[in-house]
Design a protein around this nucleic acid. Sequence first.
RNA 1: GAGGUUGUAGCUCAGUUGGUUAGAGCAUCAGAUUGUGGUUCUGAGGGUCGAGGGUUCGAGACCCUUCAUCCUCCCCA
Length: 464
Amino acid sequence: MSKPSIPQGMRDFSPEEVRKRQYILGTLRTIFENYGFQPLETPTMENLVTLTGKYGEEGDRLIFKVLNNGLHEKKDADKEKLSAEWAKLLAKPYSSPVVTERALRYDLTIPFARYVVMHQNELTFPFRRYQMQPVWRADRPQKGRYREFWQCDADVVGSTSLINEAELLCIYQSAFYQLGLPQVAIKINSRKLLAGLAEICNAPELMMEITIALDKLDKIGWIGVVAELQQRGVADTGIAQIEKVINVKGDNLEKLTALKDIMKSSATGLEGIKELEQTLAYYDKLKLAEWTATIEVDISLARGLNYYTGVIVEVACRAVQMGSIGGGGRYDDLTGLFGLKGLSGVGVSFGIDRIYDVIKELNLFPPQLVAGTQVIIINFGGENELYALEVLKQLRAAGIAAEVYPDAVKFDKQMKYANKRNTVYVILPGTEEREQQKVSLKNYVTGEQKLMSINDCIDTIKGH
RNA sequence: GAGGUUGUAGCUCAGUUGGUUAGAGCAUCAGAUUGUGGUUCUGAGGGUCGAGGGUUCGAGACCCUUCAUCCUCCCCA
């Protein structure tokens, strides 16, 4: 037998880790429900054609494809075809329905779009849904990057109002506030502004090239961006325009005012600015004073997915060295990919695993999360064992998470077990206690122990 | 797709210029202690040194191949 292992980029989650993740998911769920979003789940696998072509060339490569089952049952006539398809498949990120027609979910947005199109007649628009499920990517794992990870999305489809954008900003704010994340920056931009930028560079066709280069500003600096822009075919006059734009300073309104002037020749660009202004105006009305994350207009923000068309956002936690912990934006025609035109959507995504890593690194999980069982009952065997079960029944009926040590082994061993389980209380129902129909309740934190009735015991534990 | 790191006990890791029977801490189990835990003491079990090949009288160590792992770039959450 070789040592057991798990596939690359996949992880086990210990009881403590699951509890901590559930704390994050629970916090988010409460917020989503509070904002009127409804839960949705979609299957682990989608048809491959549903996913391909939606995430760009790079994305297609990272989709986990699922082999068709029953390949061994193919008739001889099919086998030759099959091996030819295999050869192609192994050579390139190519796929064929003969070999694979399904794939693991790559994100939650495309399956959501598919769902909306399939159920368009049953849904009431605008439709607001949230979804929290794992997704899979055949990426090279590294820090903060896994092949299986959780996503948590909230989207609204069927409304072009920028109130939606503003509300999603509020959801971000509320979530990071409640989770206690410090130094969170929500960066906001508009694809239209980027398109406008390409226009004033006299190179509208190079919009994607410009945004990709610009997106690296944080990482490689302006000099690096210039090199990349030149390499991507942007003229020097264009680069001068871009430099003017990224040098715009001040608070959000000052930035937007300055940009209006630079963008005055681009209708698209001006529209993008107006969107941002309107979004921020709505947000101002909705925001709570206690929220701490900053909202920053950032022209260099691009975001990879190519279906975004309007406002885009990305969230970073500057307290730790980590990639973005969330992102999202407006996609005017997402469902158009599946044949339903004219339905606009906007959504945000939370990178649960990264948020987990950040909270862990900064030690911000509430300490009481670790406790599961509140009380462990010692098993003294014989008649005392039966009495222990009686006590156990009453504790559980009272809503207390309790367990009895299932074997009447050495007392010392049972006490050590309780200690490791980190419970607050231990109950000792021995002969003496049983005869009086009482229990000894020991508080493991203080070391105190008292003889009391079962009802008093329940009250004490609940009062804790 | 490109580059690098590390693989030795369940876990974290030592292991000298190649030299007899491969070590430690933690964890596990047993005992000191048959109704009082978290700190003590004693003892025990547990390893095909990632795998395959080569050099050598002799390889955990050196060489080649391969697999796995983690990290960086690309891209992304």
